[in-house]
Simulated assay, not measured.
Amino acid sequence: MQPVITSLPTAEPYLIEQDWSKYTPDQHATWAELVSRRMPQLAEHACEEYLDGFEQIGLRQDTIPNLAEVNRRLGPRTRWNATPVSGFLPPDAFFEMLAARQFPTTTWLRSRESLEYTPEPDIFHDVFGHVPMHAHPVFADFLQQYGRVCAALIHDKDKLERMGRLFWFTVEFGVIRQHGRIRIYGSGLISSHGESNYVIQGGPEIRDFNLDQVLDQQFLVSEMQKVLYAVESFEQIYEAAHEAEKRLL
């Protein structure tokens, strides 16, 4: 396990406190509706590690997560923290936080009118979609390694763009083969009923994970993904992040 960086000089201006007491009953009800819409499908189609992580970090269906409580359970397992931030971070601050095992987490929640999709990440996407996977030791080490490599590449736009594809096809739109089936683990799939349905119904081409192909695979954020890359284990992406470091640094 890589050593954890405690200083966040670039990200520090974006760090905030979550005032959990300020969430309204309607917001908690919106969270409950979002979770209840996703869990039946995820119980069948999410990877085992996501479902286990959901339980380990104590997420609940009826209330918006209190990040301090989440971190009390997550930290001892993998030394990761869901760290509240004010919104979008510049790339250097984002990678600095990942390298420090601090996941930038927004604290606002989408409105009831935007249950299916919001263009900006909210606490549902960030915590429900991402954080359960941070309880898995190998995935946790992969994500830190990814942040370290990208932080070192921050001034090389072309190489950073290639690393962004590794993030997209794992952290955001990752799928894994388990028990002879395709299961989802990427947050963009976990948190979106429409995106998940598209995968479950056989929409995208599912290729075996190949680092060279992933680094070269272009994608559009604005449409359903035509190609996804299935791993056999999370050790595969951990090794891929180290191989990317050798190739790009």
Results as ranks from 00 to 15, higher is better:
108 W>E: 10
187 S>K: 13
93 A>G: 08
105 T>G: 03
202 G>N: 08
59 L>P: 04
106 T>I: 05
117 Y>M: 08
225 Q>K: 15
91 P>Y: 10
11 A>E: 06
169 F>K: 13
133 M>P: 01
97 M>E: 13
73 R>E: 06
34 L>V: 06
215 L>N: 11
137 P>C: 03
244 A>C: 05
136 H>S: 06
55 E>N: 09
96 E>Y: 03
167 F>N: 12
62 D>C: 03
46 A>V: 02
209 F>R: 05
181 R>T: 02
200 I>L: 15
23 Y>C: 08
18 Q>S: 12
228 L>G: 07
7 S>W: 00
159 K>E: 12
238 Y>P: 00
190 I>N: 03
187 S>T: 14
194 G>I: 05
109 L>G: 08
183 R>P: 02
2 Q>D: 07
119 P>C: 09
141 D>C: 02
4 V>D: 02
99 A>C: 06
136 H>K: 06
123 I>D: 00
194 G>L: 12
201 Q>W: 00
138 V>M: 12
136 H>A: 07
119 P>W: 08
14 Y>N: 11
224 M>K: 13
154 I>E: 15
238 Y>A: 13
60 R>N: 06
196 S>C: 12
62 D>N: 12
152 A>Y: 05
196 S>G: 14
220 L>W: 05
5 I>S: 14
94 F>P: 03
78 T>V: 09
28 H>Q: 07
158 D>A: 15
132 P>H: 04
218 Q>D: 14
234 F>M: 14
241 A>R: 07
121 P>V: 00
101 R>N: 04
186 G>L: 12
54 F>V: 07
112 R>Q: 11
129 G>V: 09
224 M>H: 10
22 K>Q: 14
33 E>L: 12
115 L>S: 02
126 D>N: 10
154 I>M: 15
155 H>S: 15
204 P>W: 07
128 F>D: 00
133 M>V: 08
158 D>N: 12
34 L>C: 14
199 V>Y: 07
82 A>V: 10
200 I>T: 02
243 E>R: 11
49 E>D: 08
238 Y>R: 13
247 R>I: 10
134 H>L: 15
244 A>D: 06
53 G>F: 06
236 Q>V: 07
35 V>C: 14
208 D>Q: 11
67 L>W: 10
86 S>Q: 13
32 A>L: 04
225 Q>T: 09
152 A>F: 01
206 I>Q: 08
108 W>T: 09
53 G>S: 03
161 E>H: 12
64 I>G: 02
161 E>I: 10
86 S>L: 06
76 P>K: 05
207 R>F: 11
87 G>M: 05
186 G>P: 08
203 G>V: 08
158 D>V: 15
163 M>C: 12
185 Y>I: 02
195 E>R: 08
204 P>G: 07
13 P>F: 15
22 K>M: 04
153 L>D: 11
167 F>A: 11
227 V>L: 01
210 N>M: 01
180 G>K: 05
10 T>M: 10
158 D>H: 13
200 I>Y: 13
44 E>G: 03
178 Q>D: 09
103 F>T: 04
135 A>Y: 05
196 S>Y: 02
